[in-house]
Design a protein around this nucleic acid. Structure first.
Length: 109
DNA sequence: TAACTGACCGCCG
DNA sequence: ACGGCGGCCAGTT
């Protein structure tokens, strides 16, 4: 595995189950760099170079699709989420606490 | 080489 | 309860 922070982010994001979402801060904390949530978002920016990175499943802590503007068509992010069964209204994920996926707990099986 | 930015989060006023 | 600001890591200019 790569020691790069980016590569690490890609792996976690790729592990996000369908119909689930995660926040930047949680991913950053999972990587051990709590507080470097911005870095996670930056990694997502480079995620465009990665073919299998469901960046649409990554949102901020309030469940708001802040990174939608970085998708090819901005609506693509909301569309993909709705396709997976996630209800999104006005770029805001509904039942965010339910669809939220915490790597720190679900992976610790 | 040094400084700023960036798909954020948490704290302080 | 709401608003503003600093901090985090790495890449880009």
């Amino acid at each position: 595995m790569e020691d790069s922070f980016f590569q690490n982010v890609y792996e976690v994001v790729r592990l996000i189950p369908k119909g689930r979402v995660c926040s930047y801060g949680v991913i950053a904390a999972y990587l051990g760099s709590k507080g470097s949530a911005r870095m996670v978002g930056w990694a997502m920016n480079a995620a465009h170079t990665q073919p299998d990175i469901p960046a649409h499943r990554v949102v901020n802590r309030v469940g708001l699709l802040t990174g939608r503007h970085h998708f090819d068509p901005p609506q693509r992010m909301q569309m993909l989420l709705e396709e997976e069964g996630i209800q999104v209204i006005d770029h805001q994920i509904q039942n965010f606490d339910i669809v939220f996926w915490n790597p720190n707990e679900e992976i610790s099986v």
